[in-house]
Amino acid sequence: MPRLIALRIAMSLLSLFLAASFAFSLVHLSPTDPAILALGDGASEAQRLKLTQELGLDRPILVQLATWFMRVLGGDLGQSIFAHKPVTSMIGDAIPVTLSLLIAASVIAVILGITIGIYAGLRSGSWVDRLVTSGVSASLAIPSFWLALLLAYFFAVKLRILPVAGYTTYAESPSRWVIGLLLPSFALSVHGAAVIARHMRGAVIDVLDSAFINAARARGTPMRVVISRYVFKNALVSVMPIIGIEVAVLLAISTVIEKVFVLPGLGTLMVNAVITSDFPLLQGTILVTATILITVNLMIDIVMGLLDSRIRPQ
């Protein structure tokens, strides 16, 4: 097990390095001169040259990469071109918003998805199962931002029991923090719950058909034990990687949810960075996003290693 963890951490660091290189290369992939991007079209040639020197854009690309890495490792992601603030502090403000939303939605999605998936899988072919399957199909087709709009309209505009928009930090008021997150995290979780339920149902049906379930029944193990011990764990093992993928999808969808509920999170920063061609901010947010997801996948890998001995290195 320690070997597995060490191996996975090393692989995660490699992924992180490559993701960072990708973020760095964004500026240089753009057909427009980064200095022009920063200054806008109306800038004079003198201004452009000055900034080019300031940013070190005239030096060899590998030198730029190395200096950029050194800065990033030192916690400096540069200056936002548009907001004229350090990117690190902007991201620092946004991270708690996005993380609370993402964690809340993921927890709801996992709990709902696994419960519904097992329930339907054990009753495959019944009317309950058909109902769940259709519900899942519909949930997968509903655009999350539309669902969020409808929920906001119903609970906030019509019933007036929940706030329409905005974010209250935990430090300001824990109760308002929770209430403010209720609608966004539920709206975000629906897609995840549907995907997880769908895979869990399939996994349960496959496991029920496998030889070892037959063998467990043949040795007289009561069905409730067969389900709680063998079906559950084996199905969970095959759904774990899906959960990892789904957290990434939820993080992507959180950008639209943040927009609907006017939450000042990473997604909002990222969208503004793209609209204003604010490359330092875009690089920073992409790097942070990748870090979050690589960490999530590392945790999933470790849990998988605990659940399933086959993937541990021998």
Binding site: S15, L18, F22, S30, V274, I286, T289, L293
Partner: peptide
């Protein structure tokens, strides 16, 4: 492709649109 996939599709699309 692992690396490309460690960034969600939508956010990858952001980067391409930024370029």
């Amino acid at each position: 492709t692992d690396i490309a996939q460690s960034i969600p599709s939508l956010i990858f699309a952001f980067a391409v649109i930024a370029i």
